[in-house]
């Protein structure tokens, strides 16, 4: 199929940036979206133009690096996948596809479609861990039984790949689904209980400091999340946060 691509080009963080049109031809429906981008870039390199910079790495939907806003949707029109898992069979011959970076004040553009997501890392550094010595001198793994239900729920929260689609999809640029998932993983496990109150307070404080917006329960994040992270995690974070503040 033949396609028209409208792509955000921005030289660096200082540049104002603009949409630029490109044409690609003979795109197979079996290609992934990023393979289509590879075809475009090969074309650009061969004509001496600078290729479009976009984040990607594992290309199997787990590293969370890829991050395109395609036709107004984070990770494009399909559900439960990342951009690298999106296939061209979701599009039709002659389509015009608009490709933009994540848009959020806390995610400044580095170049073209690449944004800086360090705010997520700083939130995790504010408390997204259990303070156990990394020495191996811990108790036997099976000395702490954890109900299958709790372990499975913690796992569901822990599958978050921190791609930022939730922030990009939210009209408030809220990071609460991401932070909710990270808080929940530990809140659901007995190992995480000891520091639970400090953790949620510190992580929420850092989230606010980074300039993410608030949650108004539209649920757009949950719809666009490639890993199906549930809104329940936001509720759990709010509960944890309230009880942490009440207890002082």
């Amino acid at each position: 199929m033949n396609l028209t691509l409208k792509i955000w080009r921005q030289k660096d963080s200082q540049d104002k940036g603009q949409m630029v049109d490109y044409k690609v031809t003979d795109i197979s429906e079996h290609m992934s979206f990023l393979e289509m981008m590879d075809v475009l870039n090969e074309q650009l390199v061969n004509t001496g133009e600078e290729p479009v910079a976009f984040d990607h790495d594992c290309r199997e939907g787990i590293c969370g690096m890829c991050s395109l806003y395609i036709n107004g949707e984070a990770h494009g029109p399909d559900r439960g996948i990342t951009t690298c898992q999106l296939h061209m069979r979701m599009f039709n011959d002659g389509d015009t596809i608009t490709i933009e970076p994540w848009r959020a004040a806390a995610f400044p553009v580095i170049k073209d479609l690449i944004v800086d997501r360090m705010a997520f890392e700083r939130i995790q550094q504010a408390g997204g861990y259990i303070s156990v010595n990394t020495s191996g001198n811990t108790q036997d793994a099976n000395s702490l039984p954890i109900s299958k239900h709790a372990a499975d729920e913690a796992m569901d929260a822990a599958t978050c790949i921190g791609c930022g689609a939730c922030v990009a999809s939210c009209k408030n640029s809220s990071a609460m689904l991401f932070v909710g998932a990270k808080v929940s993983q530990y809140a659901l496990l007995p190992q995480g209980q000891v520091e639970a109150a400090d953790r949620v307070k510190n992580m929420v404080a850092q989230m606010d400091l980074e300039g993410f917006g608030n949650c108004t329960n539209t649920g757009a994040c949950e719809v666009e999340c490639p890993k199906g992270i549930s809104l329940e995690n936001i509720a759990r974070m709010n509960r944890e946060f309230m009880s942490a503040n009440i207890k002082g």
């Binding site: 191996g136 793994a141 039984p145 954890i146 299958k148 372990a151 530990y186 190992q191």
Partner: peptide
């Protein structure tokens, strides 16, 4: 064996059986 101990202590949600063990 010690790797598993360390990871569980860190909060890695390994699969468990109904008795709560790994």
């Amino acid at each position: 064996g010690n790797i598993i101990d360390q990871c569980v202590a860190q909060g890695v949600p390994f699969a468990r059986d109904y008795g709560g063990l790994l």
